[in-house]
Design a protein around this nucleic acid. Structure first.
Length: 418
DNA sequence: TCTGGGGTCCTAGGACCC
DNA sequence: TCTGGGGTCCTAGGACCC
């Protein structure tokens, strides 16, 4: 086949105008904590005072996860340190996070939204995209958005912003306009007035590394970016440059992914309560992390092809090494064997380590694998052991079975800790 | 002796998101 | 000053093959 023939099969792309909603919970972690506290008889609504949901400073994870509007007035920002937040507002009230509550509320929201369409993408625990393309009139769509906004507040007790647009990017940008408890549209003709005056840092997918580079090029607003030469941005920033030009011009043809996809990778990492320079100790912690990751892998019925170990030094420099497994597996011991080799490769004697993490990648469904081709007797024995332990964990909780070596240390494996 | 280029796979690191 | 944890995607270089 000649090249000309090869390329003549490309399907013509038709861009259909879609009707998209983006539903974003206002101050999700804080709101959800607030309603849980009220339910349990609390006299104060922490949404009404300067407050945050924060990590634990004593465990060196002291960052702001969510803030109340009053806290925002003090200039407190998400992801900054609690230390800094307290300087800005000495009276700040700090509450711990609780993922079980967040999951429950997120599920309630999803269930309510299912009454409008089943084409819902759960973009994160507190954000959903809805493909409402069957409501063809703009007015009909806007009315549905208003109805969702009202019903969530009345029936679930927290507020959401709803963005209304003809693609996901614009719907997401719209829901980010004034908060809380608002519905905003961002149709094509509104881009110049509603989106272009905003600072370029507000555009989705432009982060803190890119902003200074754009500023140097005199690109300060989203409008500036929209009117910059596309090819020039492509030359300077590669694919990312093309994408940011398209976003600035309101172009986005991505689909609402309402079918849950298999995860690409699964990982856990932990910031250690104190820096550790003892490789034996690091190995012990790595084994615990491997236990958790492999357990999640098995629960999802997946096998991993690649193992990756990450270290962060006390100076915040990150390094990672990865390695292909001899064959796809979800077996704790097999993953740990490779992980331990990677740790040995990575660790320079005497370095103070702040964080250690493990992730597995290139996942496949267990059923896709011809087990009989690979499984030796020894491996079958290991799988059987994992299976037995998993059943006990299911029945009595993750921490029912603990490795002997970790009984003596006091690190909390927070995710599964009651 | 000196000379390709294209394709795939693997790896390390970086940027971004919530 | 102190800086989480869980992800996704991209890039660039090297190895290897044809």
């Amino acid at each position: 086949m000649t090249n000309a023939n090869k390329y003549s099969i490309i399907k013509p792309v038709i861009f259909m105008k879609r009707e998209i909603l983006h539903v974003d919970v206002n101050n999700a972690f804080l709101s959800w904590t607030a309603i849980d506290m009220l339910k349990k008889g609390s006299k104060i609504d922490i949404r009404e005072i300067p407050s945050i949901i924060g990590g634990d400073e004593s465990k060196r994870s002291g960052i702001v996860l969510a803030k109340s509007p009053k806290a925002k007035e003090f200039g407190i920002k998400t992801a900054e340190t609690i230390y800094q937040a307290k300087i800005k507002c000495p009276n700040l009230q700090i509450f711990p996070s609780n993922y079980k509550i967040y999951r429950e509320n997120s599920d309630k929201l999803y269930k309510l939204l299912l009454e409008y369409t089943d084409k819902i993408e759960r973009f994160s625990i507190d954000e959903c995209f809805l493909d409402m393309t069957h409501y063809l009139m703009n007015d009909a769509l806007l009315n549905k958005a208003k109805e969702i906004n009202k019903r969530v507040k009345e029936e679930l007790g927290f507020t959401v912003n709803v963005g209304v647009a003809h693609n996901k990017l614009l719907a997401k940008m719209a829901s980010d306009f004034t908060k809380p408890d608002r519905v905003h549209t961002l149709y094509e003709e509104e881009i110049p007035t509603k989106m272009w005056p905003l600072p370029v840092s507000e555009l989705f997918m432009i982060g803190k590394r890119t902003v200074p580079k754009l500023y140097q090029m005199q690109i300060k607003t989203i409008g500036d970016l929209a009117h910059t030469n596309k090819e020039m941005l492509g030359n300077k920033f590669g694919k990312h440059g093309i994408m940011m030009w398209e976003y600035a011009n309101g172009i986005d043809n991505s689909e609402v992914k309402y079918i849950r996809e298999r995860p690409k990778g699964i990982g856990n990492s932990i910031t250690l309560p104190q820096d550790i320079s003892d490789i034996n100790k690091l190995e012990e912690i790595l084994l615990n992390i491997t236990d958790q990751v492999a357990y999640r892998l098995r629960k999802e019925n997946l096998l991993a092809n690649v193992v990756n170990v990450q270290l962060r030094t006390k100076n915040f420099s990150d390094t990672s090494h990865q390695k292909k497994l001899p064959h796809p597996t979800s077996n704790t011991k097999e993953i740990y064997t490779v992980a331990k080799e990677l740790l040995k490769e990575l660790y320079k004697k005497g370095t103070a380590i702040r964080l250690i993490g493990l992730r597995v990648d290139n996942l496949i469904e267990k059923n896709e694998m011809q087990l009989s081709l690979f499984d030796t007797k020894e491996e079958k024995k290991l799988d059987k052991l994992d299976e037995t332990i998993d059943k006990l964990k299911e029945k009595y909780g993750y921490n029912f079975i603990k490795r002997g070596s970790n009984l003596k240390d006091n690190i909390k494996w927070s995710k599964f800790e009651k």
